[in-house]
Computed example of a mutant assay.
Amino acid sequence: MPKINRQAGQNIRELALTRRIKSSGYFISAFFTFFLAFLVILNFSFPPIFYLFFIAVALWLIFKGTSLWQRANLADRGAEGEEDIARLLAQLEKDGWQIEYGIRLGNTLSDVDIFCVSPRGKFYAIDVKSHKGRVVADGGKLYRYMGNHKYHFEKDFLVQVMRQALQVRKHKDLNFVTPILAFSKASVAIQSGKLQNVYVVEKAKLISLLQSLG
């Protein structure tokens, strides 16, 4: 089986860089918009609404740039989570496990964070999340506690990792791929450790889970 030579977190680091470049473009455009408005004020006389238009455009550009920069920060945090998990998995490679990172799934924009092959020939797709807090299950869904407050996740991570497992199974022409959702920063308080056929685990217990599954 060919091994894709990508580093842990590489895909999302590249995404973060792309977002920062676009964000910088918005900030530069906002600066020139303000500068152009200043030149117009010095040299021409227009109704106030004309200048308000320039200000509105510049503020919108700043808003877009700030939003993209914040999303880049989130992407970098996600990459750190993948890198943390990769450092743990290095010990499994010494035991004969094969590990690939950032597998692109055909022409889609999605990827599999980590794909593992055990010495016994079992396959695992691991989706890494860098959320903080305490992850719990309620009614077949995942939630997280931050202090005493309970929050929904922004996406259905169980469905997401299940789809990734199915896609990588098709992509590599395999019989079965076990989906695992791994939290690099949060603790996981799910009694069975499994929800909707997806293993949900915190970073400290990932190695023991993989070893037990073989």
Rank of each mutant, 00 (worst) to 15 (best):
H152N: 07
R87G: 08
K132D: 15
K141N: 10
V159R: 13
G81K: 00
R77I: 10
H149P: 00
H152I: 01
N148C: 00
D113P: 09
I99Q: 08
D127C: 05
V128Q: 00
C116M: 14
G65T: 03
R144M: 04
G133K: 01
W60D: 13
K122W: 12
I62Y: 01
E82Y: 02
I114H: 08
N148I: 12
M146N: 11
K150M: 09
N73K: 14
I55Q: 06
I103P: 04
M146F: 12
G147R: 08
G121Q: 09
N107K: 07
L158K: 11
I85T: 06
K132P: 04
N73G: 15
F115Y: 14
R120K: 15
I99T: 10
V117Y: 13
L59A: 12
Q160L: 04
V135L: 08
G106L: 00
V128D: 08
Y101P: 06
F153D: 05
E154H: 13
N107H: 03
L142P: 01
P119F: 01
V128A: 13
L158A: 08
M162W: 11
H149F: 11
A125M: 08
R71L: 15
I126T: 07
A56Y: 11
K141R: 14
G78D: 06
I103E: 04
G81Y: 01
G140V: 05
G81M: 05
V135H: 09
G140W: 06
I103R: 09
I62M: 10
I55F: 15
W69R: 12
D138I: 01
D138H: 05
Y143D: 01
R71G: 07
L88F: 14
K155M: 05
K129T: 09
D111N: 15
S130N: 13
L61Y: 09
E80A: 06
H149D: 12
V128Y: 03
Y151I: 01
G106V: 03
R144K: 11
L68G: 04
Y151R: 02
K155Y: 13
A58W: 07
R144V: 10
Q70W: 14
D95H: 12
K129R: 13
E80G: 00
F115W: 07
Q160D: 03
D156C: 08
D84N: 09
G121H: 09
Q91M: 07
A79R: 06
L68S: 00
Q91S: 15
T66R: 11
L74V: 13
G147P: 01
K150G: 07
F63G: 02
L68R: 11
L61T: 05
G121Y: 10
D95G: 03
I126N: 05
L105K: 03
I55V: 15
H149Q: 14
E80D: 10
A75M: 07
G78M: 06
R71H: 12
E82R: 03
K94C: 03
I62H: 03
Q160Y: 03
K64D: 04
